[in-house]
Computed example of a mutant assay.
Amino acid sequence: MIIHEWTSDTTDAHEEGRRFGAHWAPQLTGARDSYLRLFQQSGVSGEQARIIADECRIETETYAPEVADEFRGIAEGSGLALTDVLLLTARTEILARMTPSMECSTVVYVPGDARPPRTLQTWDWHETLSNETVVRRLRSASGARVVTFSEFGQPAKIGVNDRGLGLHFNILHHRTDGSQAGVPVHVLARMILDRARSVGEAVAIARSVPLAASSVLTVVAFDGTVPEAAAIEVSPTGVAVLSAPRGNTLAHTNHFLDERLAAGEYSPYETTSVPRYTCLTEASDLSRIVDDRERALAFGSIPDAPISVRARPEQPEHLRWETKLTVALDVAGGAIAFAAAAPADVAAADWRRVGVADEVVPAVR
């Protein structure tokens, strides 16, 4: 997977979108075509996908007008229809109505002293999709500096801001997914990165918007003295918050941990979510490792660990998932550190670090 980088210092969302769209038009067009193929394979026609995307556009304009402005700029700059830009952002909401997808294992350690949380996540996605992605440095309309990893066309996924807050992202599946129009979960992630300084503020933002699909946003924060973390499980039927006490580890994969929301769990296929969750919790001491690359290497050294997902060639194309990224957050330094590899392969991969405002630090091995 190729991870591009993009830096912007403007708070004008429309202008940022226009510049981004013009520069990355081939990648955006390629992503649109790839997702239309995936939707078709998953039983969603292009017409159905665009109807859902337009529903998401309306909700985004209502609850995140600054992100909607960016989308309009991306459409103008890239030459894509605005609906197709939203189609990329709303891919979770579109797939939630037909074929739920697997992705991601997250673990966070919250120190008992005045040090920041330590985190690690894998991003697991379709083998044939998103083989070009982007790490964006941007300045939000609120003035916050943000650095976020995402697929092309998404406003955010995994990232941090310069206000001491970071966010990990895992998909979930609930029987109410697709039952209403809502703000795309990737727009919600951007809203939190743009606006929040604390877990409490992130929770308030999550509770303030309607949603059409489920996910868990594991939010970590550090104010210089007190570390905090919580898994915010969101779905069309409600929001649940699972906080991590100081001195403890919090893990999440792709099943609900809140009992009420878990009662509506939906997964029509064999899932590795529970084995991956068990792997993280049984190896929770590794999450205490201070150095982010050493932390990734430690989890990657677990024999036959299911958190390093390998594509299964016997599966049809739209059901083959693999780990594409291993990433850690530094909320104190305002940076993300990552390798385009599964944990088991980090030792042979470039480990890169990108801060909200700093120059890129050379990759290390």
Rank of each mutant, 00 (worst) to 15 (best):
S208C: 05
A189Y: 04
I192E: 04
V160K: 00
C104F: 01
D113I: 11
I158L: 11
D177N: 15
V199S: 08
Y109H: 15
H186C: 11
L120C: 03
A181C: 01
R163C: 09
T119Q: 01
R163L: 14
A114H: 14
D124W: 11
S142K: 11
V187P: 08
S142E: 13
G153E: 04
E151Y: 07
V209G: 04
Q121I: 02
R175P: 02
A202V: 09
T133F: 02
C104G: 03
V185F: 04
A189I: 03
V135A: 02
N170D: 13
V134P: 00
R137Y: 00
I192W: 02
H168F: 11
V203L: 12
W123L: 14
H186L: 14
R197M: 09
R190C: 01
L129E: 10
R163K: 14
T148V: 03
T119F: 01
S208H: 06
D177Q: 12
A144P: 10
H168A: 06
G166F: 03
L172Q: 12
A196W: 04
G182D: 00
S179G: 14
Q121K: 11
P116K: 12
A144C: 09
T176F: 09
R139P: 00
R139T: 15
H186P: 00
A144V: 06
F169T: 06
A156C: 10
P116S: 13
H173A: 15
I205A: 06
L167A: 10
K157R: 13
S198A: 07
R195W: 06
G200Q: 13
V199D: 02
S198K: 05
T119A: 02
R197A: 15
I158S: 02
N161M: 11
H173G: 13
R163V: 05
I192Q: 04
H186G: 05
E151H: 08
E132W: 10
P116A: 15
R137N: 03
T119C: 04
T106V: 14
V135L: 04
V147M: 01
R139M: 09
E201Q: 15
A114K: 12
G164K: 13
L188I: 07
K157H: 12
